[in-house]
Nucleic acid binder design. Sequence first.
DNA 1: TTATATCAATCAAACGTTTGTTTAACTTTG
DNA 2: CAAAGTTAAACAAACGTTTGATTGATATAA
Lengths: 213, 213
Amino acid sequence: MSVNKDYNEKQGQILTTAESLFSEKGFDGTSVRDIAEKAGVNVAMISYYFGSKEKLMETIFERRTEHIRLRVESLMKDDSIDYIGKVHLIIDEHIEKAFSKFQFYKLMVCEQVINKNPVILDIIKEVKKRNMQVITELIRKGQEAGVFRSDVDVILLFSTMYGTVSHMIIGSDLYREISGLTHLSEEEYYQHLKQLLSKHLKQIFKAILTHEA
Amino acid sequence: MSVNKDYNEKQGQILTTAESLFSEKGFDGTSVRDIAEKAGVNVAMISYYFGSKEKLMETIFERRTEHIRLRVESLMKDDSIDYIGKVHLIIDEHIEKAFSKFQFYKLMVCEQVINKNPVILDIIKEVKKRNMQVITELIRKGQEAGVFRSDVDVILLFSTMYGTVSHMIIGSDLYREISGLTHLSEEEYYQHLKQLLSKHLKQIFKAILTHEA
DNA sequence: TTATATCAATCAAACGTTTGTTTAACTTTG
DNA sequence: CAAAGTTAAACAAACGTTTGATTGATATAA
């Protein structure tokens, strides 16, 4: 599948800089000269290493795909963790990944709206499907064990998890201002947000998965 | 405040076409020649009527601001509707507005990520604050009446409502495919989604606002 | 009633930049 | 010395915007 290629120092510099600029100004709002200058390389190096601006973007997505995929699959088989505990693992892993690579998550949202590049859309589609399967499987087992309700819509639950977190990341500036937490550093505020989101989503998941209608 | 200007036929045509193209291809991905051609006007008319491409975008946002604002404020004072009923009104109005102007909502999400134009960011900020105040006020009254829990985080609740709906709209193609509902028309599928989202969000709000932790 | 002035609307063409990409010469590396 | 890395310069295409001429309708004056 997705081969984990190695990138040299200059390639890595270009990828990281481009990811940052794309997420700040969008794909079309960022010029290759912007990227080259900020990455400290010559403009021609982008074509030389990645072929084109478009393929540079695709490479960014390929590189991060590995990151987005939920890694809790092995823990799902651990019998010492109960079903609610496993749901908590999924929620916390998603929050952690989204915040640790928030620039990429912003980029992902924009690229889904501006559905131009089919290669990128496919990458997003595959990883979303994959992550949703993990959750579907867990819920199915929980239902068989009689712990979870039988009428759970996984897509809606998934949308609430992804949607709430994305929306918080995208609107974090506004919400920091409203909360009156402007004295916190971005890092401190993000830690605070992660904790709030974790508690909030766990409460929602518990209600939807276990309470009676 | 926001004066409701009148636009002639040609101006309206430009605004509608631009909104559609911006939401499909992004602001920087859309050229003024694209807009002019699709709207059936000369390129110069865009500068002539709106001053610049940037100001055209701002005009789109000013025009739609009126639309986004929750209009349930009067119903909030109606004593014949209970607190849960009022929460339902807010949820359904938000869903209805988001789906009826889904192109604009996509555009809003992208513009929040690509925080370039301060005029537009201010418009988004103001309307979000405004809508959140409506909900805050309702919840506060419900708390005083002893119907709602005392430890409710309005920002999180608001994020779940906006986030879940946005995420569904943005990823609707993928979710239609996964649900196996490709035989439905876009309109039919949206009606279906609206119904699901309404039930889902009402369940979440009820759990967070009324259940004990 | 003509004739003339006024003004917004409309257009093709041109403006100067910026865009992504390529070239061809040069340097470094193994 | 051959291959890979690196560069400034050049490329055509596309960009947002402006220009200057032209239209057509309305108001003013003879």
